[in-house]
Nucleic acid binder design. Structure first.
Lengths: 149, 149
DNA sequence: CTAAAACCTGACATCGATGTCAGAGGCAAT
DNA sequence: ATTGCCTCTGACATCGATGTCAGGTTTTAG
């Protein structure tokens, strides 16, 4: 029972609508080897249901700063279970990089938040950062700085 | 006693060396209104000590995805204590956006980590992702998913 | 004094994901 | 068959931060 979940006949416009990603980008992903599509006899792309999740994953990796090339190299492991030790190592490198990003962003977030809540020290000058008017800007819970374990 | 900490006479090459940012970028920052420098009579830039931290802050905000324009608009608040309610609101918007980024990255990190540690479900297919050879890739502590809280 | 090194401005190049446009063909409904 | 929408390929445009080069001036070291 291979390749059962077929018959969905999702076209590129549908996939774009379902993922919020432009048609242009979907074609680009395919060109970069990130996404595959069956082709009808007339050349039109048809996607399986799984494509929706796949596009989501691709977007997530893009958001983490990976390039198309890197994603293309790692996807076989992530998606098909094809893992070589070397691939796993590359994956770990990316994970650690993301850890650093998280740590940096968390720090930035807290600095911004300090300014917003007027919690004293003002990033560089240490001067208070208060509007004449009351700010009334809610939503402030400090993030912990735990990242690269 | 205004503007005491002077006399450091740091030139652009020195600042570049101290911050790890290229000379080209430092000039660009100035052009974008993110960084100011005194000029010697011959036109050479001289920076105060504070410039080092300032460049660091700029980099941090770039890393958070802010554009030069946005940074230029927010820096007066962040650095000089010039906060209007509107500026604080903009700042809060950025903070919340960073929160979303952190949440997304944390999720991505954990998905990658799951694949790395072979902890069962394989992102999309649910197939195990194990190398023939033992992976031996350390460093794995799940991040909590707390962000916009 | 002189040569090397650093600086100045201004311009053009780059990279990567995406937008957009043009011309041609496919598909469904009337 | 015609109309309207969707799709195809291929090409060119964009944006933002940075690299790089050129031609000229300043500073520094010998």
């Amino acid at each position: 029972m291979a390749y059962v979940t077929k018959g969905i006949r999702m076209r590129i416009g549908d996939l774009a609508a379902r993922t919020g990603v432009s048609v242009r980008s979907l074609r680009y992903y395919e060109q970069q080897g990130l996404l595959t599509a069956e082709r009808s006899s007339s050349g039109q792309r048809h996607y399986l249901d799984g494509a929706v999740d796949r596009v989501g994953l691709i977007q997530q990796l893009y958001a983490a700063g990976l390039s198309s090339k890197t994603i293309a190299e790692l996807l076989p492991c992530v998606v098909d279970g094809r893992a070589t030790p070397e691939l796993l190592a590359r994956l770990a490198v990316q994970r650690d990089d993301i850890d650093r990003q998280i740590a940096g962003l968390t720090d930035t977030r807290n600095r911004l938040d300090s300014v917003i809540t007027g919690a004293g020290t003002n990033m560089l000058t240490g001067r208070p950062c208060r509007a004449e008017d009351a700010p009334a800007v809610p939503n402030s819970a400090k993030h912990g700085t735990e990242a690269s374990g």
